Amino acid sequence: MDDIRSLIRAVNLELSPVFEEKLRQLLADKDRDWLVDQVVRLSLDAHGLREIDRRSEREAKARARAARLERVRALRLDASGVAEFVATHRPTTRDSLIASGHLLADAPAKGTELLTSASRSAAGEELLEYAKDVLFALLFGDASTLTSLDRVQQELLTFALPVAKAGALDFMRASTEITAAGTWQDPESVSNDERAANTLLEVQYGDTADELVGHGVIAALGLINNLEVNEQVLYARMIDVEQTTLIS
């Protein structure tokens, strides 16, 4: 009497010609470079594949950083630009983004999953990218990025993100990440968390005498939260730094 292995072999033999023909049809229209890349991947062991993936990821991040720096230079952000950004976007809410067409009305409820491009219009995608560029300029901008802000005092920004959503701010640099557990009791029972896995990000930045940079940071984080992070409460705190160990 046949065992299960022999039955599987028999089915495989029967289906192999059909599978081969179907695979040939699917591969016939593929780009030649893509095919070469796939053949190389099939010939490598797991270690080699991981190294290729890591290298590709590094190269993709480098390209993204270069593109962001170019956009930040184009902003030429100064005090008047920050003031305009704050006046325009500090009052922004999820409802106003839906009303303006930046966010779709059926986007996942606040406190649930990360919002993807499927929940944003083309204008929403542009606004999200703009908010991230402004946040980058506010925190890290200097003469090399054509950012002109009279930074006279040091501040420490701390904000918390669920680990699963931390990728929304993966463009941050010169930041410290700390793993932490948080508890959130949602009054509406949409997103109760008990000992949820969070990441605390700490960034030291220079602020102006009137703390305009801090106001801009809050406005930018509000946009990013409503367009992507999608937390009911995105915790952020800024405190004066009297002394620092950042010595050049």
Rank of each mutant, 00 (worst) to 15 (best):
N226Y: 02
D170K: 03
R58D: 11
V163Y: 10
S43Y: 12
F171Y: 01
A123M: 11
R73Y: 04
V11E: 15
S6K: 13
P91M: 04
A83C: 08
T208F: 06
Q185C: 07
G48C: 06
T183Q: 02
L156E: 01
A160P: 03
D150Q: 12
F19H: 14
L161F: 00
D106P: 05
K110V: 13
R65A: 14
R55F: 02
T145S: 14
A143K: 15
S100Y: 02
R9M: 10
S6G: 14
F171K: 00
S100H: 02
S175Y: 12
L128F: 02
F19P: 06
A122H: 13
T244F: 03
E231D: 06
D150I: 08
Y235H: 09
R120V: 08
D142V: 10
Q232A: 09
D53M: 04
Q38C: 04
A209C: 08
E155L: 03
Q153T: 02
I98E: 05
E188T: 15
E113R: 14
S96I: 11
F19R: 15
T244S: 13
D186S: 04
D31W: 05
E188V: 12
A219L: 01
L201P: 02
R58I: 07
T208P: 06
R58P: 02
E202G: 11
D2I: 14
S80Y: 10
Q153L: 01
N192P: 01
F159N: 03
I218M: 10
P17C: 02
R9T: 11
V36A: 09
A166D: 10
R94K: 14
D240R: 10
E129D: 14
S189I: 09
R50N: 11
S100W: 03
V72Q: 00
L44E: 15
Y130W: 03
F85A: 01
T244H: 03
Q204P: 06
E188M: 12
Q185G: 09
D33C: 05
I8M: 13
V39E: 05
D133P: 04
D78T: 13
F85S: 00
V36M: 08
H102G: 05
S43F: 14
L103K: 01
H47Q: 14
R63F: 04
R24A: 11
A109T: 10
L69P: 00
P91D: 05
R63T: 03
S43D: 12
N226E: 08
L35W: 02
Q25M: 11
I52A: 03
L169K: 01
E202V: 10
A209T: 09
E126Y: 03
V203N: 03
T145M: 07
L35K: 04
H102K: 10
D240G: 11
P162L: 10
R237V: 09
S148F: 11
L146C: 10
T112I: 04
E228H: 00
D33L: 10
I98R: 05
L169M: 09
K110T: 13
R65C: 08
Q25S: 14
L234V: 05
L127K: 03
A209D: 14
